[in-house]
Computed example of a mutant assay.
Amino acid sequence: MILRSLLKFLFFHIPRIAFQIAGILRAIKRGKRAFRKGLESEGLPKEIIEELIKDFDPLEGIDLKELINRKI
């Protein structure tokens, strides 16, 4: 019974969670690229674009490896 629930967790829940996290990261990166393209189309200098992207980065200050390795 315990073995069955462990295997279910390993083969169904962990991959689902991993794909959800990957999807979130993909959406964030896509948004950053679109933001960069929008700023470039307005003709802003590269230095200002880089600073704005750093300021509005939703993953700033978040270490994903630390979150994954954190024990609850």
Rank of each mutant, 00 (worst) to 15 (best):
D57S: 08
G43P: 05
G43A: 12
I21Y: 06
M1W: 06
F35T: 03
N69R: 11
D55K: 14
I68S: 09
I53P: 00
I68Y: 14
E51P: 00
K71F: 05
R26V: 04
D55A: 15
F9Y: 10
I14W: 00
R33T: 14
E40Y: 00
E50D: 10
H13R: 10
L44C: 08
F12M: 03
R4G: 02
I2P: 01
I48K: 11
R36S: 07
F9P: 00
G38W: 02
I49S: 05
A22T: 03
E47V: 10
G61L: 14
M1C: 09
E66V: 04
G31L: 00
E66Q: 12
K32L: 14
K71S: 06
R33N: 12
F35D: 07
E51V: 08
L10I: 09
L44G: 07
P58F: 11
K65V: 05
K37M: 07
K32R: 13
I14H: 00
R36M: 05
N69I: 10
I14M: 00
R30V: 08
L25V: 13
G31E: 06
R30P: 00
G61T: 02
S41V: 11
I68G: 12
R70K: 15
R4F: 03
L10R: 01
F56E: 12
K54I: 05
N69D: 07
R70G: 03
K29Y: 12
L7C: 02
K32P: 00
L67I: 12
R36T: 15
G61K: 01
R70I: 06
L39G: 06
E50T: 07
S41I: 09
D57Q: 05
P45I: 11
K54S: 13
K37I: 01
I72D: 01
K65S: 13
P15D: 13
G61S: 08
A18G: 06
I62Q: 00
G38T: 13
P15L: 04
I48Y: 12
G43I: 15
P45V: 07
G23Q: 04
G43W: 06
F11C: 14
R4V: 11
L6C: 05
I62T: 10
R16C: 09
G31I: 03
R70H: 12
E51N: 10
F9H: 13
L64M: 14
L3R: 05
N69L: 15
M1V: 12
I2Y: 01
R33C: 08
L39N: 00
R30N: 12
G43H: 07
G23K: 01
F11M: 06
L6K: 09
S5M: 08
D55Q: 10
K46N: 03
Q20T: 13
G38R: 10
R36A: 11
I72P: 05
D63Y: 09
K54P: 02
L64T: 06
A27E: 15
E66M: 04
E40M: 09
G43K: 08
I68C: 05
L7N: 07
L52H: 02
I2K: 09
F9N: 04
R26L: 07
F35I: 02
F9Q: 06
H13F: 05
D57T: 09
I49N: 00
